[in-house]
Amino acid sequence: MALLEVNDINVYYGSIHAIKSVSFEVNEGEIISLIGANGAGKSTILKTISGLLRSNTGSIVFDGKDISQVPAHKIVYLGLAQCCEGRRIFQQMTVLENLEMGAYSQPDTTIKKNLEMVFERFPRLKERRRQIAGTLSGGEQQMLAMGRAMMSNPKILLLDEPSMGLSPILVDEIFDIIKTLNRDGTTILLVEQNAQKALKITDRGYVLETGRIVKSAKGKELLDDDDVKKAYLGG
């Protein structure tokens, strides 16, 4: 059984039908990518899974439990963490406080252990733990956002545009980190406009067009797919 099963969800913004009967699944240990143009509905899908938006139909089954009606603040307790688009760190709190908030759902005893784990993965956050998060560089803020999400020990991590606004070197670094997290046991659901990079590390990918899944295949196959190449990979 899949770790995350999205069945036939439909999401509306007012009268706009943003997500149209989308279904897909993520198996344990996989890296799954949703790719598509700006406005295709990628972020909307992630927000619906994490409970910030609601689908009128269908179900979202995570780890054997239908979470489609569970309030957003309870979902992280089940082992699903999301890194929002635009990082969304708490700008006026310190790096350490941000990480502590990431572990809000965890008992006090595990916070210390998780903190060590995150500092080991992101040594730069350790150096800057007393710094106000808003003063970090873009790359550091992305690391903080990911570190914060990892503080809840998630089974699955939803990443929304982690490479947005970062320099090419940092983008490589972020994708390396995603691979390592996955190798160490975290299932990843990745939303990216940088389809090239995303598909290279992806087990399976789904292509989204105006709220509908139009194609799904192994990451490598999508990289070689003519339509995908034309639309998202620059030729």
């Binding site: 994490s50 409970g51 603040h73 992280v76 307790y77 999301q82 990431g102 809000y104």
Partner: peptide
């Protein structure tokens, strides 16, 4: 929104 994702009610 981010606070909710941390598990804060």
């Amino acid at each position: 929104e981010a606070a909710q994702l941390m598990g804060i009610n």
